[in-house]
Amino acid sequence: MGEAPEGYSGAGFFATSFEKVIGLARANSLWPLPFATSCCGIEFMATMGSTYDISRFGSERPSFSPRQADILLVMGTIAKKMGPVVKQVYEQMAEPKWVVAVGACATSGGIFDTYSVLQGIDRVVPVDVYVPGCPPRPEQILDGLMRVQDLAKNESLRRRHSPEYQALLASYNIK
């Protein structure tokens, strides 16, 4: 038995192009769950506003129900009191799901290096994209969204069942 030519091994050609199509569909229909706690949430409003218009990316339907959301946009300070809530919301989301940490507070705690603030949400949930800034400009939030789109486009349909992914979730004690 000879070796399969490159690109034809593993998942078949149709499977991969099918994955691509689904990836494209997902990328263009990312419904955000705006977990807006503070300042960055206000900038997210600006992102939803007419001038920046997040709907161009197909993401203008904010799903406040975690079941229906595709990306968790954590915007603003997450206090230690809030940490478990973030985790719970993440657990309630249906796969595939991505997490974007927007702004200094959500990514690292920012200037709030205090006893009550969680120093970055990646301590409770796995984060896919970090957006710096305090608060980031709407451009930067859109930038983060496009990074997620890139992820979605290139993600294998089977990634969510892979042992690596399970291990990642396990390391956060999720499910």
Binding site: G76, K81, V85, I111, F112, T114, Y115, S116, V117
Partner: peptide, 10 residues
């Protein structure tokens, strides 16, 4: 208190 950031302490 869900986003208590301890301004007064900082």
């Amino acid at each position: 208190g869900y986003i208590h950031r301890a301004f007064e302490k900082i």
